[in-house]
Amino acid sequence: MSSSGVARFWREIPQRYNLLGNKCNSCNKIFFPPKESCPFCRRKSIGKMKELKLSGKGKIITYSIIHSAIENFQKQIPYIISIIKLDEGPNITAQIVDCEIEKIKIGMKVENTFRKIQEDGYTGAIYYGYKFRPCDSLLTEKEQCKCDTK
């Protein structure tokens, strides 16, 4: 990533680290990433957009298994990219981690986790942000042991 890339990432830290979205206090719709004004209320929403931290919980509405990735992500293939409907309403696209490829399914409950998103080789900046993991990844250990043990 170039230095302008570093600057862009840096500006987006509140969203990437803390899922900071916003809410239109005119129609109560919630947006992520945050919007300058509400696309539904337009002028009526001016001055009424309120910052809102999203809970980071949601459900998978669709997903895709990535088998062929760009350079920075090659060590992770195959991995899961998913569109998640957050409990507050907005959809978000994110990688799913700590989940076996054969276990992923639509409707699965997920929660956000803090991970490295990308790094500029061995010398550049490291970029952190949200990924999602199954909500019950800590409660299904019996099931996991069965299929993970060689």
């Binding site: 060590k75 992770q76 981690v97 986790t113 803090f114 991970r115 490295k116 998103i117 490291i126 952190y128």
Partner: peptide, 16 residues
Amino acid sequence: PSIDEDTATISVEAAR
């Protein structure tokens, strides 16, 4: 650690 985990991500998870 997973490929996307390091001391910063582990610390954030513990703090949260």
